[in-house]
């Protein structure tokens, strides 16, 4: 038995050894280094000089930092709940025993596959002020379309609208969750004479609440790192930096201004923000999320 144990120890370490390297080199070291740089004046081309908390105090005074943070939170606050709602609504529709489920599912999922860059390029064309098809369509419906990407008031809503197109991934996850809700619960509810809405509220939502939580957290983490699409569609956050997001400012500081220390401080603030938001979600979850007792 002892021989077997030792054999398992060595084998186990051998199997995970790539990860020991990967974790150390590509995660732990960068994190520690990033923390150190965040207290330094560092341009990569010159050695890092510790400057205490200066990067953090400068950030506190940096109005662009606050603006980019506001833009990002604004975007997240719209895109995450709306995306969850739409994904859930689609999943519920698909789960109601409709014929052709797989076809619909494929259609709704397809846009979620689009590479970010292609997505951005395509929507630039759709949003185009003069020849954009969206405004033509809205005009047909008698709606005076806003000048999406050229008006500071509309640039963020435009990006939120675009993000709705990519809810397919969350929808598929919801759908899987819905299909796992045991049939007998609905049957029991039927016996009690529950309406459709009662069943949604008291059976479906509680049963899939862990999935909602998962999708919500993923949505928050993703939208706080929003980069490629605005980098292409609203370069420099045009117009008037109304679409200048946190990750863009971080990227610019790091690679355009070579202020790696400042960028690292931003990175850490983002990390802490994500950490806190996740924690808050989990706390909320403890109250509302229903975990079925393990079978």
């Amino acid at each position: 038995m002892r021989g077997l144990r030792r054999r398992e120890l060595w084998a186990g370490l051998a199997f995970v050894s790539p990860w020991v390297v990967g974790l150390g080199v590509f995660l732990i070291y960068p994190i520690v280094a990033s923390l150190y740089y965040s207290f330094c004046d560092y341009s990569v081309l010159d050695r890092a000089r510790p400057i205490g908390l200066a990067n953090y105090t400068d950030l506190a005074k940096d109005s662009l930092f606050w603006k980019s943070l506001f833009n990002t939170l604004f975007y997240a606050a719209l895109a995450v709940p709306l995306g969850l709602g739409l994904a859930l609504a689609l999943a519920l529709l698909l789960n109601s025993g409709v014929r052709g489920l797989t076809v619909y599912r494929t259609i709704f999922f397809l846009p979620a596959l689009m590479p970010m860059v292609a997505l951005a390029v395509l929507w630039l064309w759709i949003f185009n002020g003069e020849y954009g098809v969206l405004n033509v369509a809205l005009a047909r419906l008698g709606i005076q379309a806003p000048p999406w990407l050229t008006d500071p008031a509309w640039s963020k809503p435009a990006l939120v609208l675009l993000s709705m197109w990519g809810v397919g991934q969350a929808m598929v996850i919801f759908l899987a969750g819905l299909q796992d809700v045991p049939e007998h619960l609905y049957e029991a509810a039927d016996l009690d004479g529950a309406s459709w809405w009662d069943k949604i509220r008291h059976v479906t939502l509680p049963m899939i609440s862990p999935v909602i939580l998962f999708n919500g957290i993923m949505g928050i983490i993703g939208s706080l790192q929003f980069f490629a699409i605005p980098y292409i569609m609203t370069p420099n956050g045009q117009p008037a930096r109304s679409a200048y997001f946190y990750a863009m400012y971080l990227y610019d500081n790091a690679f355009l201004y070579l202020r790696m220390g400042y960028a690292s401080a931003m990175a850490w603030i983002l990390f802490i923000l994500i950490f806190c938001l996740t924690l808050v979600s989990l706390r909320l979850a403890a109250r509302y999320v229903h975990y079925e007792a393990a079978p």
Binding site: D58, K61, D62, S63, L64, D151, P152, N236, G237, Q238, P239, A240, R241, Y244
Partner: peptide, 28 residues
């Protein structure tokens, strides 16, 4: 300056406000 120009052009801020903000930021 490009952002301030946008703000001025789009009527988001007066020239004085927008340029004033740029001065404060750049001075810092």
């Amino acid at each position: 300056m490009n952002a301030a120009f946008d703000e001025i052009w789009l009527g988001e801020a007066s020239a004085e406000e927008a340029l004033g903000r740029v001065r404060i930021r750049m001075q810092q």
